[in-house]
Nucleic acid binder design. Structure first.
Lengths: 214, 214
DNA sequence: CGTCCTGGTGAGTGATTACTCACCAGGACA
DNA sequence: TGTCCTGGTGAGTAATCACTCACCAGGACG
């Protein structure tokens, strides 16, 4: 518990540590399941002080959703691989960003809770965390269809399909507690391979297409 | 509002109408977000009577999760197609079962809420509603791999991947409100096609593999 | 007739909730 | 020295929560 600062802090510091403490609680128990008393305790301050910084509990929640926008550097890496037409790399990047063990697990819970509980900022949160990905991916897929490298598919649907595979994987793992018996790299590569080349075996033509999947 | 029965009902009838009324509320607002007063009002009875039938609010919630087990007839249809090795049909059946417009939208919300809020019966609920599907699908995929018809993939991972695509689709639509601009049949067929044949175009060999997807 | 069971309720109970208010400590600056 | 601002609190408050209890209506059965 990082609740060890009864010392004075500036307004901005307090606000930040409040947001940090509350984020964990909201992600764990949802908006309705979290009390302001718990938040204050987790931040190591009195309940009254919480309301000096945020007029209502909802306002604190909104501040959290508004703050966690991230994304950023990943899109650059994607952009670069897109220029090189490195299909495998792009899909691996996106999948990895969603499955990678280091990724903050609270964000997914926060996102789901906010959507289920119907918070007003949920749409924005969803847009910043998910929509960007499948919009960018859809654009790339369209490009590759035009190149003639991909089959004639609906780019948006295909993008959603791929991201769906991998988000669902995380969902199973983090929300439903399904154990993942394969390594992270292995899993990502399997998903990418599956999506790019499909399930049906290609009868022996000259191509060395059958990548090992183990 | 079906709250129009102040008349006497037998204990079992009351219990059933209580469960029906509460299911909608729990799915909409979660366990913590739903009050017993609301439930009573939706069922058209007094709050006290709710507790005559269920000792606690949690017990009522548990009764709901325990009751909604369904599945059933779909597995028979799958079994039949499995004997015929009708790949497309099997994947279409499963996808359809999850995307079909008629499917009760409250179940998905209920499932997510119960998992996020960490209800004790959540695992069971998940097992009956999802695990059966990807276990069955994984078994079929393994069979087809042994037939030599599918590539050498991890069956469980592949099954999860496909179901992930389609569950994610429903999630986007029902929970996040993303509009779906294509028809139901079209969407399902696109997903199945994508999963079976992959994204990468097969260079012109003799096969007429490129199914139209539009 | 009485009495007993079942379905049903109004009016509470104490605990908990989000939120408020009067007040305090101490450094800054005059 | 005084006073003023900022960070901080203990002790509330009204509302709401899950849950309880004493009681009622009426049909069944003797």
């Amino acid at each position: 518990m990082p609740a060890t600062q009864p010392s004075k802090q500036s307004s901005r510091e307090r606000q930040a540590s409040l947001i940090q403490a509350a984020t964990g609680l909201f992600a764990e128990k949802g908006f309705n399941g979290t009390t302001t008393r718990e938040i204050a305790k987790a931040a190591g301050i009195s309940e009254a002080l919480v309301f000096k910084h945020f007029p209502t509990k909802r306002a604190l929640y909104a501040a959290i959703l508004a703050e966690k926008v991230t994304v950023g550097e990943l899109l650059d890496a994607i952009e670069e691989s897109a220029r090189k037409r490195d299909d495998r790399r792009i899909f691996t990047l996106i999948a990895g960003y969603r499955i990678r063990p280091g990724v903050d697990p609270t964000l997914l819970r926060l996102l789901l809770f906010s959507a289920l509980e119907g918070h007003e900022l949920s749409d924005m949160f969803f847009g910043k965390h998910h929509k960007v990905f499948y919009d960018r991916l859809a654009a790339y897929i369209q490009q590759r269809v035009e190149d003639g490298a991909f089959r004639q598919v609906d780019p948006l649907l295909a993008a959603r399909a791929f991201i769906g595979m991998v988000v669902h994987h995380r969902l199973l793992h983090e929300i439903f507690g399904v154990p993942m018996d394969r390594s992270y790299d292995d899993t990502v590569s399997s998903y990418v391979d599956l999506f790019l080349h499909g399930l049906v075996a290609v009868p022996a033509t000259g191509r060395a297409k059958t990548r090992r999947v183990t």
